[in-house]
Computed example of a mutant assay.
Amino acid sequence: MSEVADHGVRFGRIAVMVPVKDMDKAHDFYTKVLGFTKTFENGNPVGFMILKRDQGELHLTLQPDHPTPNFNVAHMMVDDVDRLYRICQQHGARIIKRIKDQEYGLRAFVFEDPDGNRIDVGQPI
């Protein structure tokens, strides 16, 4: 195994960039269903948006021709994974992996947002 490089540079937050085909639809899902708040937008029409909730931050980028990925694009840690699972189900989000306790110490599930982006959600057991 290789050693970790330490160049004396400290990293701050790293935000996930999520490609979306319809900015309004994505905004509505993340704000009205998941409770994020828009803190910034750019362009006319809007091509970039920052959404925040608690310590979480998502950057949405308008990419109308972006192919839907078949892998998880983000991982969210929450304090009530069962509640978020029910919220996703109630709002018709496609569940890719049902909620269950994982051997790596998280209770987790995976859902798709309206653009098909897969989001992995977990809570320590």
Rank of each mutant, 00 (worst) to 15 (best):
106 L>F: 09
125 I>D: 04
19 P>N: 09
5 A>H: 11
47 G>L: 07
36 F>M: 07
23 M>Q: 08
33 V>S: 01
31 T>Q: 10
76 M>Q: 06
29 F>T: 03
60 L>S: 00
123 Q>E: 14
91 H>I: 02
16 V>L: 06
58 L>K: 01
47 G>K: 09
58 L>S: 02
59 H>D: 00
61 T>F: 10
78 V>K: 00
88 C>Y: 04
110 V>R: 06
125 I>P: 00
13 R>W: 05
68 T>C: 09
43 G>A: 10
44 N>C: 07
93 A>L: 11
123 Q>H: 03
95 I>N: 09
87 I>Y: 09
67 P>H: 02
100 K>V: 01
70 N>M: 08
97 K>E: 15
79 D>L: 08
113 D>H: 07
20 V>Q: 03
90 Q>S: 13
48 F>A: 01
29 F>N: 00
107 R>I: 01
30 Y>F: 15
53 R>C: 07
81 V>S: 02
74 A>S: 13
124 P>Q: 02
80 D>F: 01
108 A>I: 05
110 V>L: 13
42 N>R: 12
56 G>R: 03
86 R>G: 15
44 N>Q: 14
69 P>E: 06
54 D>E: 13
79 D>M: 06
25 K>F: 10
110 V>M: 12
23 M>N: 10
22 D>T: 03
59 H>T: 00
80 D>H: 06
99 I>Q: 07
93 A>P: 07
89 Q>M: 10
19 P>D: 07
123 Q>L: 01
77 M>S: 09
97 K>A: 10
28 D>Y: 01
72 N>V: 15
70 N>T: 03
124 P>E: 05
90 Q>A: 13
114 P>C: 12
1 M>G: 15
105 G>H: 11
96 I>Q: 11
4 V>L: 14
58 L>G: 01
102 Q>F: 07
93 A>R: 08
26 A>E: 06
27 H>I: 11
50 I>R: 03
32 K>I: 00
72 N>I: 08
35 G>F: 02
119 I>H: 04
27 H>T: 12
15 A>L: 07
34 L>W: 05
56 G>I: 04
88 C>K: 04
120 D>Y: 15
83 R>C: 05
75 H>N: 14
59 H>Y: 02
91 H>K: 05
88 C>R: 07
59 H>K: 00
89 Q>H: 11
62 L>D: 05
31 T>W: 05
86 R>A: 15
99 I>L: 15
20 V>H: 08
86 R>N: 12
14 I>W: 01
80 D>P: 06
102 Q>A: 02
94 R>A: 15
51 L>P: 00
9 V>F: 08
28 D>G: 00
17 M>C: 13
74 A>V: 08
